[in-house]
């Protein structure tokens, strides 16, 4: 059964230097509060995993928490590029960042394999692309039944997966709805998991399209209201689009970035 604990305690207990960590959220329910707590606790040498690394990964990378990034699309959604990610790849600032790059279809199937307890996943993808050439974790495989040439990608089993959800009950059962992304797969694929929630309630009720992660499938739950800001939690908070636009300017400059992080996160 998941225990409900304060966020700082949850991150201290679950996230260790050198871990592979997936903070998932497909442009909705992005666990910003948990990412900021990782930065405050000064975790280092993390392998960060995410389909769509965005602002919170830009912040983790710019603060030197990451050694490696496993991803499929790294940008500021609806705005443009990530300048701290770009600076790390192009100029090794503040430290070199190794990258392992996939397509969305490949990444999501890696989580599916991880959640399924399988060593790899099969898909029809990457054909003729530079990713098949440059990424070690993309390999051809022949279907034993039809002889069709397909692509294999290895399972992702993060040491820790962290997601944000709308609600949990007091026993730690978690409910999320709207764009549910890859959160379920990320949690089930992980060795340890943390779910931050907008609200802790006595009883979960029915919601159209909601999924439930049972308490016994999660390590820890933390109450983190507005924990996905500046992204959004459907039914609770809205996307702060002005901040996404403002981040483009803040993150272009190393000093402006560092000053912003000192003032708002540390």
């Amino acid at each position: 059964m998941a225990r409900v604990v304060p966020l700082a305690d949850a991150v201290a207990e679950l996230v260790r230097d050198g871990d592979s960590v997936a903070l998932e959220g497909f442009t909705h329910l992005i666990p910003f509060a948990a990412g900021h707590e990782i930065i405050r606790q000064g975790r280092r040498d993390l392998t960060l995993i995410r389909m769509t690394p965005d602002l919170v990964y830009d912040q983790l990378i710019g603060m030197g928490c990451a050694r490696k990034l496993v991803f499929s699309w790294g940008g500021n959604p609806g705005v443009g590029s990530l300048h701290r990610f770009r600076d790390a790849v192009q100029n090794s600032w503040p430290r070199p960042l190794e990258i392992e790059e996939h397509s969305h279809a490949g990444m999501v199937n890696r989580y599916v394999a991880g959640a399924s307890g399988l060593p790899f996943a099969v898909l029809r993808g990457y054909a003729g692309t530079g990713l098949a050439e440059h990424t070690e974790t993309v390999k051809p495989i022949t279907c034993p039944f039809t002889g069709e040439e397909l692509t294999a990608v290895p399972a992702l089993n993060p040491d820790v997966s962290i997601v944000h959800a709308q609600r949990a009950d007091r026993r730690g059962n978690v409910q999320l709805w709207g764009i549910t992304g890859v959160q379920k797969e990320a949690v089930l694929a992980a060795r340890r998991s943390l779910v931050t929630v907008e609200e802790v309630v006595d009883e979960l009720d029915d919601r159209r399209g909601a999924i439930v992660l049972p308490s016994w499938a999660i390590s820890l739950v933390s109450h983190a209201p507005r924990g996905s800001h500046p992204s959004y939690s459907l039914g609770y908070t809205v996307r702060d689009n002005d901040f996404y636009v403002a981040w483009d300017a803040i993150s272009r400059d190393r000093d402006a970035f560092t000053a912003w992080m000192r003032e708002h996160v540390l």
Binding site: S72, W73, S81, S103, H104, L123, R124, G125, A127, T129
Partner: peptide, 17 residues
């Protein structure tokens, strides 16, 4: 790279499927 762009996202499989 001279300029690191966001990357593939869904595009390779959208393009082929």
């Amino acid at each position: 790279p001279e300029v690191r762009l966001p990357g593939a996202g869904g595009a390779p499989e959208i393009a082929s499927a």
